[in-house]
Amino acid sequence: MVRPIGMLAGAGFVLALLWSLAWNVVAYVQDPPVPTVEHEFHLKPKENISWSFEGVGGKYDNRQLQRGFQVYKEVCSACHSLKQVAFRDLEEIGFNKAEVKAIAKNWVVEVPSINPETGEPATRKAMPFDKFPSPYANETMARASNNNALPPDQSLLAKAREGGPHYLYSLLTGYQDQPAELLKKFPDAKTPDGLHYNPYFPNLNLAMAPPLADGQVTYADGTPNTQKQMAKDVSAFLMWAAEPNLPTRHAVGWATLAYLLVLTGLAYLAYRSIWADKKPKKAK
């Protein structure tokens, strides 16, 4: 008795799924979704940019990361925080202890602290063990300074956005005027005042003005300071900030693979040694 009831219940479930599928297909045919401006004009990140850290053996280029940090320091840090990264982490990209200490001490924004004599809130110069301080005291102040838009923290941005550094590079170099075709097809989609058109941003318009321009940052090593070069350098730096242990993971992965290959070889030799004098029984 239980089995027929189970079969009937299963058949009912399948019929309900088929009915739901048929209903949705009919609804889609009768009332197809209206194309949106984001669907037609949003672009995927550029994939023609090569990075030293790509691939199974990729490693960070410390010179590039130092240039990217310079771009972050001189341009991005005015609006964006880097709260998951400490000043002393910069030693991993080639800065020595004295340089890190000087960078922390001369950072424009001081670190929140407590006055030991009065117990009242205060600020102090940053130390190497401090995380990079936010340029704003709170979210309200950040929004008030950016047309009610909240600048995202950049610590994990390269991992949080699809495309990672490709997305960041595309966004930084993708500002342009709205295409005439867009305005012709979607006349109500004109970029509002105070926003900027960028086809690599999900909704095509963002509050951040184009942050980089040719010659904006002067590199100490003489690297050409074009907009594209600065965008690539800071994108690589933010990738390091989001995943500083990437080269270590690659090295551990290769070591693990070599260990497994050796272990497999030893296991095979052990198998041959154990069964070398064993003859298979003849079938009767």
Rank of each mutant, 00 (worst) to 15 (best):
V111R: 12
A267G: 14
K83N: 08
N106Y: 04
P192M: 06
F53P: 04
M208K: 07
A258D: 03
V217F: 05
N203T: 15
P211E: 07
I274P: 06
W19D: 02
I114K: 13
A213S: 15
G94S: 03
Y197V: 00
D214N: 14
E47T: 12
C76A: 13
D61F: 01
E47R: 13
R63N: 14
P211S: 00
E40H: 07
A104K: 01
L246C: 04
P224Q: 06
N148R: 09
D277H: 12
H250T: 01
F13M: 13
V71G: 04
E243D: 15
L204D: 03
A142E: 02
I274R: 15
H196A: 02
I274V: 12
A149V: 07
T218F: 09
P199K: 02
G119K: 05
A255Q: 07
A209T: 03
L156N: 11
D31E: 15
V262I: 11
Q227M: 13
N225S: 15
W51C: 04
L65G: 04
N245K: 13
W23F: 12
K97Q: 10
V85Y: 01
L212G: 09
T191I: 02
N115S: 01
T140C: 10
N225P: 14
A78N: 10
R88G: 01
T123K: 12
Q66D: 06
F41Q: 00
E99D: 12
G58N: 04
Y169F: 15
S52T: 14
N138E: 01
T248A: 14
L168E: 00
N198C: 03
A189K: 01
L269E: 12
Q154L: 15
